[in-house]
Design a protein around this nucleic acid. Sequence first.
DNA 1: GAGTATTCTTACCGATTGGTAAGAAAAGCG
DNA 2: CGCTTTTCTTACCAATCGGTAAGAATACTC
Lengths: 204, 204
Amino acid sequence: MTTVDPPRRGAAAKGGATRAMIVDTAIEIFGETGYLGTSLRDIAARCGLTHPGLLYHFPTKEALLMAALTRRDEQDGVDNPTHGRPGRDTLASLVRTARVNARRRGIVELYATLSAESTHPGHPAHAYFQDRYRSLLADLTLALEDLAQAGELRAGVRPDVAARQIVAVMDGLQVQWLLDGGATDMAGALADFLDRLLVAPLEA
Amino acid sequence: MTTVDPPRRGAAAKGGATRAMIVDTAIEIFGETGYLGTSLRDIAARCGLTHPGLLYHFPTKEALLMAALTRRDEQDGVDNPTHGRPGRDTLASLVRTARVNARRRGIVELYATLSAESTHPGHPAHAYFQDRYRSLLADLTLALEDLAQAGELRAGVRPDVAARQIVAVMDGLQVQWLLDGGATDMAGALADFLDRLLVAPLEA
DNA sequence: GAGTATTCTTACCGATTGGTAAGAAAAGCG
DNA sequence: CGCTTTTCTTACCAATCGGTAAGAATACTC
């Protein structure tokens, strides 16, 4: 899904692989030190490149950031058949993602660091994260409304509020998990939280 | 509680006020652009100083950061008579803090930005936030255990897990609130969540 | 008003930043 | 092999970074 370009005519071929390596490395290092705290030379060095060599593939630091964010979205999309039908599956896939993320510290760092950093208007990823949260909340609200109509939500659970809480719990748990060196059981705490919204637990 | 120093002998007096202004400004700007994204010149300029003028009061950028974090802790301590007796009051004070914070964007930005940024070992505030979360979780767990013994928690609520969830919801809601320009009702969503842990709602 | 700390500025430092210019290496095609 | 395109390096740039040195202002005490 990512580096599929068959060796183009001319003398391409190698470019795609290098690009992929750069993006992967960028995800790692942006996660470790944030966008502002990372230099192109850092990323390039870990790829065995000089920084102008990197800039040949991505014209600007900002372009590389957006490529990194986009790629992580693709990966997530692959892991999750989420967009089938809303409902219990949507919630279950959140827990699944949390479980998978516990083995991908780099990606968790990337999102935790950048979502907070991009809070400030003027940050290159500001619009990206605004859109991301908007659509995330919309999807979740929809799924919860479906569950409500099916009578699967406990009394007093408001879909829009619950959606915000779910997203918040996921984000917040990631920060704790990152800070305590992986001790926090993200998937467990999330599942526990979700079960408190539902009439019947997620996984029997 | 902050600038109480009565004009010291010699030719001091002004120093304390300047220091306070610097710290307040630092809180603002660190919040907007993070620690790594902020320059001492930015902060100094907004204080009507040059950056060496700032460095006279705080020997290093890191020292200023710690001063900013410490000051915010003081302010929080003042707002909250939290440490009286654990129990419902502890939870109620969280909602109160959320409500107050909705009028202090700078401080919310500071903590949201820095807690994520400091996730990386090697960040100057890494230890600070590790300790902060540790004690926050410990206090909350204690309060919830008290509530459990008093039979005020719903069935299946585990104090340690719930503590993590509460902290996570607070943190996560702040990011959403920052991103959507204050539309998220932090205090409301938090109170709603807390009520789902309790047998009887927080405020009748 | 003289003297003395305190507070702040101008000028500078070496290091690092993102980005550019120009050309060398490498790889495929005929 | 020669030619072309892609890929990457060396060398450089102006701007900015945190921090230092040294002295001018300022403000208070006596």
